[in-house]
């Protein structure tokens, strides 16, 4: 059961949450620069699975601290998503659902909720309410990348041990 729950978490919290955050970043960048909080929050989403894993394995205190930090960042992300996509009700609903379900994660970390309730209220509501509804919303928006690999041109000239000022004369 633990293996299954871990697999489920890796297919939601480290797949769908970063994807939504990245797509939010793309959409924000279409009109203005990314806000200042974006980079630290994104970095925390990148390392948080490892932090929570270390907490679960070694220390309850680290677990509570890392889960609190993660939940706090998710709140910030949800509020930013609601503010950015005010007219897209799919994304607004998905972000609002996340505010509720992640409170349960915090309650689970401090042993106030058990696994069966977590599956009912955290698992199901996140799976359908956050992931499915949010994905429909982002699919409708479909924000495009600001760095297109396929349209970028790369030079075929390769460097050697010595570059030097005459590099282009030697390879011209």
């Amino acid at each position: 059961m633990i293996a299954l729950l871990t697999a489920v978490h890796f297919h939601y919290s480290t797949l769908i949450v970063p994807v939504f955050l990245g797509l939010l970043g793309r959409a924000v960048k279409e009109t203005r620069k990314l806000p200042r909080w974006y980079t630290p929050v994104a970095s925390l989403f990148i390392v948080s699975p490892l932090l929570v894993a270390v907490g679960i394995t070694y220390s309850k205190m680290i677990e509570i601290a890392s889960v609190s930090l993660y939940v706090g960042c998710l709140y910030l992300f949800s509020i930013a998503a609601i503010m950015k996509f005010r007219t897209n009700w799919w994304i607004v609903a998905s972000a609002a659902v996340l505010l509720f379900t992640m409170s349960l994660s915090f309650l689970y970390a401090i042993d106030m909720v058990a696994i069966p309730e977590m599956i009912q209220y955290h698992g199901w509501i996140n799976g359908i309410g956050f992931a499915l509804i949010g994905l429909i919303g982002y699919f409708k928006e479909n924000p495009q990348t600001h760095f297109s690999i396929s349209s970028s041109s790369f030079s075929k000239i390769k460097g050697e041990k010595r570059i030097g000022v005459d590099f282009f004369n030697r390879h011209g």
Binding site: A3, L4, T6, A7, H9, F10, H11, T14, L15, I16, P18, V19, L21, G22, L23, L24, G25, R26, K29, L34, Y38, T39, A42, S43, F45, I46, P49, T145, H146, F147, I149, S152
Partner: peptide
């Protein structure tokens, strides 16, 4: 290819990079 720039794209890459961890747990299960 991008060279570690554009944090929003890096988050999307990390989503793909973490996937094998989930797959390993799926295999174990």
């Amino acid at each position: 290819q991008r060279g570690f720039f554009y944090i929003e794209e890096t988050v999307l890459d990390m989503a793909l990079i973490y996937l094998p961890l989930g797959a390993v747990w799926f295999v174990v299960y």
